[in-house]
């Protein structure tokens, strides 16, 4: 990938509002157009330079699930028969907000995959 040449880090750090840090494979986070935009080396955002994204709106529990989704997506992105990921019912609404915020919507993902 082009980003690899510019940014040496294969991993990025996602930080939740309550200070939890998640180190995630960079490619896996790119499913989110929002994070992709943040990490775009052309963008000159501080996130792109440091490889560290802070989410003030997302707490640790929700971000953990989001990270789990990133891995789930990364692992299954080439497959057709994908088992559904379990979503804990109590986190459902907060996760929905986070999904909307990060652009994990059908339109965005579809265009990324292609």
């Amino acid at each position: 990938m082009a980003t690899k040449n510019i940014s040496p880090h294969k991993f990025v750090t996602l930080v939740s509002s309550d200070g939890y840090e998640f180190v995630v494979l960079r490619e896996a986070t790119l499913v989110s157009p929002a994070i992709k935009g943040m990490l775009d080396p052309k963008s000159q955002f501080s996130e792109a330079r440091t490889g560290r994204c802070v989410f003030e709106e997302i707490n640790g529990m929700v971000l953990e699930k989001v990270v789990e989704y990133f891995h789930y997506w990364y692992k299954n992105r080439e497959r057709e028969d994908v088992p559904d990921m379990e979503i804990p019912v109590e986190l459902c609404l907060e996760l929905l907000m986070a999904a909307d915020y990060l652009g994990l919507d059908s339109k965005n993902t579809r265009s990324f995959v292609s």
Binding site: Y72, W73, R77, E80, V82, L93, L95, L96, L104, V113
Partner: peptide
């Protein structure tokens, strides 16, 4: 729906 469902879809279905 092909391949991985989006997080939004998963959440909406759970809901």
């Amino acid at each position: 729906q092909i391949g991985v469902k989006t997080l939004m879809t998963l959440c909406v279905e759970t809901l």
